[in-house]
């Protein structure tokens, strides 16, 4: 049952797979983003209340989704690393952290810029905004811990434990708007129920969400590939790759 995992965990197989996948995800992200931005900024109608200001949603919402999604990837990889000791899981988790932190930062900044004209303030310490800011600090702490420990295997174990302990923030961020009174509104897009966002506005949003996901996959593969070559620098296959280009 787990053979596919071990096969994928083999550095050489992963390196070749990454080489083949990166251009597809990279170009895919660019095309989806162009289409999503055109759909969101030009085609979608203005909102009945917020007018054109609501269009910042096409950056803010996918960035916020990515900040949660990437953290879940990190937590999953950390569990895989702690249980199966697959080095590649650690490499992917560590490569994901700066990307996740960037998306969290982007979500906070765009949300703040959106908050000023709509709510009347850049910031409020409500449950949603505070927990998302906490996620940014968790990302930064995770990255700091990783680079503070010289020994890679010790660092990997410490980071994995931290990531798993802090995964509890994810449901808190997601449900903060239902559990408590917040200034931030509830979720507009739902898998289970009907979304409270018009279809003409929803389609570009979902396209942007896929664009961000593709971008993440492309960048994480590039980062993981580089780290992998460095970690495996003493092996024969890396020597061959470096000599043959």
């Amino acid at each position: 049952m787990w053979t596919w995992l071990h096969k994928l965990g083999s550095p050489k197989i992963f390196y070749n797979l990454a080489n083949r996948l990166i251009p597809w995800f990279g170009w895919g992200a660019l095309l989806l983003m162009l289409y999503g931005l055109y759909g969101g900024l030009v085609q979608a109608p203005a909102d009945y209340q917020q007018g054109d200001s609501f269009r910042i949603m096409y950056i803010h919402v996918p960035a916020a989704w990515m900040s949660l999604f990437i953290y879940m990837v990190i937590a999953f990889c950390s569990a895989v690393y702690l249980i199966w000791k697959i080095t590649l899981a650690d490499i992917i988790a560590r490569a994901s952290a700066p990307i996740g932190a960037s998306f969290t930062f982007l979500a906070l900044v765009t949300g703040s810029l959106w908050g000023k004209p709509m709510w009347g303030t850049y910031w409020i310490w409500d449950a949603r905004l505070t927990s998302e800011l906490l996620l940014l600090f968790i990302y930064l702490g995770y990255m700091g811990l990783g680079s503070a420990i010289e020994d890679r295997r010790v660092a990997a174990r410490a980071c994995a434990l931290l990531a798993i302990v802090c995964v509890v923030i994810i449901p808190i961020i997601h449900y903060s708007v239902t559990w408590w009174n917040t200034l931030h509104q509830g979720s507009s897009v739902s898998v289970m129920n009907q979304s409270s966002i018009d279809k003409s506005m929803l389609v570009p949003l979902l396209v942007m969400a896929f664009a961000f996901k593709f971008y993440y996959v492309a960048v994480v593969l590039v980062r993981a590939r580089t780290d992998l070559l460095f970690q495996e620098r003493k092996t024969n296959w890396v020597r061959k790759v470096l000599v043959n280009g």
């Binding site: 109608p45 203005a46 709509m118 709510w119 009347g120 509104q185 409270s196 018009d198 506005m201």
Partner: peptide, 11 residues
């Protein structure tokens, strides 16, 4: 401060 809801739709 204004609180807006989660509904988005054309006018």
């Amino acid at each position: 401060l204004a609180k807006h809801d989660e509904k988005y739709m054309p006018p």
